[in-house]
Structure formats: structure tokens, C-alpha cells
């Protein structure tokens, strides 16, 4: 199973979660990152995600490999959208199954944090006033003003 996915289409959490089922797993934890309607006090209308696909898939797979070594889990998966997203859409989905809940929570947190830090994907916010801007990891603009 490919564990890190870049997806041009709407993410389906149920379908993604099915891949992680295991008779040994007593716990399943998932995280959904969704497009919100405001950032830095500006009204956001939509987002665009751009990825350097070849390297994003390598780095994403690397993070999931690290995660499975660090935590006692059964399966993990992360799917990230590319293209244009509307408010409320799922931008990123992480799911982890494990025997016990502690490992699933910790591993899920690890994966989303590392993906946001390391995977070459960029967010361009389009604002209600017609402007748009690329963001840094802390959600501040690349070129303020």
C-alpha cells in the first residue's frame, strides 16, 4: 500500500480509513486539516496547493517510514490535496491504527507535524479582496505587504 498520497480530487476519509484496518488494532486515530475561512484576520475565499510531486512523495513516504519505526503502530497513511480547495474542504488527512491508543495519538501528531515542516507543498490563499499570497509554515505571508 502506498502510504503517502497526493490527491487532485476530494479526499474520502472512509475510503482512506479502510486501508488501515487490522485485527490487531484496538485503536484508530485520524486527523483532518480543513480549509478555514480566515487567516491573519483576512477573509479567505479559497486555497490552492501546489506540490513538487516527485520529492513530496519521497519525503512523505520517508516520514511515514520514520513514524512506523518510532511508534508501535499497525498502519499509517497520509493523503494531501493539490489544486484548488474551497472553505471546509479537507486539505490533509492522516490516519493511524495501532494496538493501543497512546501510540496512535502520538504517531498521528508526529506525521502531521513533520508533513507541515518538510514536504514540498505550498499554500496560496485567495482573499475576499481579490489578492492572493503564498504562505510560510507559520501561516505568515512570504512577501508581507
Amino acid at each position: 500500500m502506498k502510504q503517502f498520497l497526493l490527491c487532485p480530487d476530494v479526499l474520502d476519509p472512509q475510503q482512506l480509513a479502510q486501508k488501515l484496518s487490522s485485527d490487531r488494532a484496538g485503536a484508530f486515530v485520524s486527523f483532518e486539516g480543513r480549509v478555514r475561512n480566515r487567516n491573519n484576520h483576512r477573509v479567505v475565499q479559497r486555497l490552492e496547493y501546489q506540490a513538487y510531486a516527485a520529492l513530496a512523495e519521497i519525503e512523505g513516504a520517508r516520514i511515514l517510514m520514520e513514524a512506523s519505526e518510532k511508534f508501535a503502530i499497525e498502519h499509517a497513511c497520509c493523503a494531501h490535496r493539490v489544486g484548488t480547495l474551497a472553505i471546509g474542504d479537507i486539505a490533509v488527512w492522516v490516519g493511524v491504527s495501532s494496538a493501543h491508543r497512546d501510540a496512535a495519538f502520538a504517531c498521528c501528531r508526529y506525521i502531521i507535524d513533520e508533513v507541515k515542516l518538510r514536504v514540498p507543498i505550498w499554500k496560496n490563499e485567495h482573499y475576499a479582496d481579490g489578492e492572493s499570497g503564498w504562505l510560510h509554515p507559520d501561516n505568515t505571508p512570504v512577501d508581507p505587504g
Binding site: A54, K116, P120, W122
Partner: peptide, 29 residues
């Protein structure tokens, strides 16, 4: 910086035909 689809060192010796990408700070998720 990435060269030919992998992260690379800023002082790597480039070869003719290499694909080079300068990566701005990422903002996925």
C-alpha cells in the same frame, strides 16, 4: 535545494543536464 528529485547540499558539484529546484519554505497541511 533539490537536485534531480532529491534534497541536495548547497555546495554540491552540479552536472550538465541536472534538474535543480530551489524550494521556498513549505506551507502544506
Amino acid at each position: 535545494v533539490a537536485v534531480n528529485g532529491e534534497f541536495a547540499d548547497w555546495h554540491l558539484a552540479l552536472a550538465d543536464g541536472d534538474e535543480i529546484v530551489f524550494l521556498p519554505p513549505v506551507s502544506g497541511g
